[in-house]
């Protein structure tokens, strides 16, 4: 059992938790992830390591409530525990001094892009960050991102905060400015956003690293459920990634594979909501 020691509500649907897992914290690095299973009936879900504290043995995760497991996790409070917590998994981000780099974080992808931006900054890069979300309520960590970036651009789809645009627009402007000599781009967010970032950087031939969020089960290379097609064959995201060259990814295949369990995800959420309502009603009745 792994104890939740702190919880922060970043938005209605975005939660942060610090979880006691010294075996993960001792070696955790930016770009890696963990697999959590809430209880004995739970599924194994991958979440990126948003931060870590080796001395205290803590791992910070940030997640968006999009389905049954993330909603259930979001209901837990400090003092509660989760049944399993494995990691750190995947390869850490390759950080060196590249010169000028752009870090793009979309939605909950802001969480995993933060430690990467921080390490890039510490390595001496000029870091330009672009963070975006559908609306203002879904944004978080603007201050933290600002602290590790030389320049921060914030945008929302609906214009409720920052620039009213999608992240690829400011990205194209920056890449178009030859003076800036952008050496590399990192992008983490919904698959569709990463697809468009890769498409945007391709004409400029700027190497672009994306962190793929395929469906996973074990996270250790045992099942192949996470496999992705690159232009030279299939790879397992959990052990070969999660970061890949965005220009090599077969995005349509990835997007279609992410849809495969839609119906089951809907059923799981519906059953869970139903159960929560019943429990809520029972609690009301008991008062």
């Amino acid at each position: 059992m792994y104890k939740i020691v702190r919880k922060e509500i970043l938005s209605d649907v975005t939660k942060l938790m610090d979880i006691e897992a010294p075996h993960v914290a001792r070696k955790a690095r930016a770009g890696q992830f963990i697999i959590v299973r809430i209880d004995e009936h739970g599924e194994r879900i991958p979440l990126t390591i948003a931060d870590y504290n080796r001395d205290a043995g803590l791992i910070t995760i940030i997640f968006q409530e999009v389905g049954k497991s993330t909603k259930q996790l979001g209901k837990l409070e400090p003092g509660d525990s989760v049944a399993s917590f494995a990691g750190p998994l995947g390869h850490p981000t390759d950080v060196e001094n590249f010169g000028a780099v752009v870090c793009v974080g979309g939605g909950v992808g802001i969480a995993p892009i933060y430690p990467i931006a921080r390490e890039l900054k510490e390595a001496g890069n000029t870091v330009i960050s672009i963070v975006g979300a559908r609306n203002r309520d879904l944004l978080f960590w603007e201050d933290k991102m600002k602290a590790v970036s030389d320049e921060l651009i914030v945008c929302t789809d609906d214009g409720s905060y920052g620039r009213k645009t999608v992240v690829t627009e400011p990205l194209k402007e920056i890449l178009g400015d030859a003076q800036r000599k952008i050496a590399r781009v990192w992008a983490i967010g919904p698959a569709i956003m990463m697809k468009f970032v890769a498409a945007a950087t391709k004409p400029f031939q700027v190497p672009t690293t994306v962190s793929l969020n395929t469906i996973m089960i074990d996270g250790t290379g045992m099942c192949g459920g996470c496999r992705v097609l690159l232009d030279d064959g299939a790879r397992f995201v959990c052990v070969d990634g999660p970061e890949f060259d965005g220009h090599k990814v077969d995005w349509d295949n990835l997007l279609s594979r992410l849809q495969f369990y839609r119906e089951e995800e809907r059923i799981a959420l519906q059953e869970y909501d139903h159960k929560c309502r019943l429990e809520g009603a029972a609690a009301e009745g008991g008062k």
Partner: peptide, 8 residues
């Protein structure tokens, strides 16, 4: 759905 993981 008694257990969370589905299989198709």
């Amino acid at each position: 759905p008694e257990f969370d993981t589905p299989v198709k």
